[in-house]
Nucleic acid binder design. Sequence first.
DNA 1: CGCAAGATTGAGGTCGTTCAAATAAAGTGG
DNA 2: CCACTTTATTTGAACGACCTCAATCTTGCG
Lengths: 226, 226
Amino acid sequence: MQISADCQSAPHLCPIVVRGFDDAASRVALQPTRSARRFVKDEQIYAEGDRAGSFYQVVWGAVRTYKLLSDGRRQIDAFHLPGDLFGIESGEEHRFFAEAVGEASVLSFRRRTLEALAGADAELSRRLVMAVMRSLERAQDHMILLGRKSALEKIATFLLDMAARGKNDNSVELPMQRNDIADYLGLTIETVSRSLTQLERESVIALPSNRHVELRNKAALRRLNS
Amino acid sequence: MQISADCQSAPHLCPIVVRGFDDAASRVALQPTRSARRFVKDEQIYAEGDRAGSFYQVVWGAVRTYKLLSDGRRQIDAFHLPGDLFGIESGEEHRFFAEAVGEASVLSFRRRTLEALAGADAELSRRLVMAVMRSLERAQDHMILLGRKSALEKIATFLLDMAARGKNDNSVELPMQRNDIADYLGLTIETVSRSLTQLERESVIALPSNRHVELRNKAALRRLNS
DNA sequence: CGCAAGATTGAGGTCGTTCAAATAAAGTGG
DNA sequence: CCACTTTATTTGAACGACCTCAATCTTGCG
């Protein structure tokens, strides 16, 4: 696939640029193996233990990566939105499961290609470090949430984060259902639901529909965010 | 400071090699700014918000990195043992507090020096990615612990991890106190104490002293580990 | 419309916390 | 080395936040 002006007319077929990968050199270096692949809701992109021959970038839709305990308990470590890279590994195997949250379009890149190019291109390599570092920072921020925040604080942090990642600052379109939110925040669906209801009762948010949250009182959310 | 044969006679003055940084080139590249600095128990190495001009390597002792919520709740994200690097940042500021757990000796490296060298040395750069990736993997494993494991499972995982990192597989010398374990596992000191006591009652471990744990039944611990 | 899946709500239970007290260990100065 | 203080750890009892189980309500979709 060639990166071309078609990206204007058919953006879903082209790699979305992310901070740190937005110059011409990187775009060539990161040329995907083929055009974007479409996944249906809950379709698996890769499984834990799969050989990590590729990594991925969300074009549109959302992707969840998660781990499972032997008895089925699930911890979602991240939601990946358009532009986000996921599936980069240091070892030979994927350490998570990756699934489409809803319908999603995902580009894949050959890992060996990037490694070869990164070996020759120090700047690209430095940028790859930065991309991984950003994942690390997200993971680290999530640890204090999981370990030390109350249910209400978790929900507040989650909503503010989703708002910051979306287009509109005060209106959040959630790509995932309660199920996924619960497993991301280390809660049950019931507690997620009750917390959202409570915030709505207190007029901190409005819930016009299941997937749509209006942030009415961001100051209150920020106070909960600590 | 020169890397020399003195490292044999006075190892605490020399950079400890870590996997991925153990060849001659890396040793020169990672030449520390000065000899190891010694920190007393609970002494701060850097604070959240400090300019991240250096990063560090533990020579001996242990270091904790942690975040605080506004009301003082603390989440320790990692314990750093001899050989471990910490304090590598993608931005300009440190995102954690770092303190010596007990008495500790720590080497520091100028960040700008490494960045310059990594720009010229693709291999060193690739290894830096790997080092950061290993941190990321640790953080990701810790998320499922914090979000989905019970107190007993958390303690079991912690003990097995400490055992794997230490010299002796069945005898763990803990460098930190209950306080730190609690804030690492997202528990209270009381729950940590009760969980350890319970494992001792069940003869899964023995506690000859506060800081010393003998793993008597690793199979049982692994079962709890998931 | 009718069904299945998702979300909410309620009631009750549980695991981990909180608060309090007792015990043990580690310093400290004589 | 011992008495004394301080700090760390353990233990107990009661509470509470979140979970579990169950029922109801809502939404989405053939």
